[in-house]
Amino acid sequence: MTFIGNEISSILSKNRNKICDSWKKQLIIQSRTLVELIGLNQVEKITQEISDSLIKAVKTINTHEHEDYKKLEKQVAELSREMSLRNITPTETAQLIFFIKDAIFPILQEDYGQNSIIADYILFINSIVDKLGLLTFQIYLESREELIKEQQRAFMDVSVPVVKVWKDIVLIPLVGMLDSSRTQLMMETMLSAIEDTQSKVAIIDISGIPIVDSLVARHLITAASAAKLMGAECLITGIRAKISQTLVQLGVDLSGIVTKTTLADGLQLALQMTEQKLI
């Protein structure tokens, strides 16, 4: 099959203003909410820019580099990213792209309605526009995933705070689920805090951990023995009645670690251990 991109490109380029106009009209009729959200000027700009790039891209899409097509993809990706930031659904964004077909096909129909080559033209445009539509979905997903990862990172940052509560005493309040990566983070932050502040006592408060199973217990034991190696004593506070009963039934032996019910008790003990008094 001979390459028909050149012909299509010149047809489109001849009707460029008509396409932009009819595309814009389609959007105003069919995607009211989207037009209202981003404004008519913006819609006009998008339709013009993408039409222009498309005209260039179909001409050179068969070349080895197809720079123009890459540029078009980039433009569409950018558009999709912007739309997802504005909380526009991926369906609406994809529709925005798909409506260009409704602008182009009638023009082809008008000029080549009797000619059998119109089927090839339509297939050609169809495959390009469909790919662009799918691209908007992919970019939408990617930008969402990025957001989730960012939030996870932000969460990890705050998930293990280390507080110096008194001279020689650091406190690590734990909240939520203690998985391996958070435990690792806890160990690192605790040990480096002990090193940096030359603290003698580290209090790990587990009031915010709903379930203490054998894995959490093992993590606590490991943390305590690591602290001990650095010459610091490790207290675990926040062991409530139901957790203590469960731990005993489970068979977890925390006898090597000093534990207290409340953080207040733990702090008092820590002050005693470091021979300090509240005046």
């Binding site: 379930i211 139901k242 009963q245």
Partner: peptide, 14 residues
């Protein structure tokens, strides 16, 4: 009871 819940949920976790 809350104790029962903690007891069983711990086992479920394991």
């Amino acid at each position: 009871s809350l104790l029962d819940q903690t007891r069983v949920v711990t086992a479920v976790s394991e």
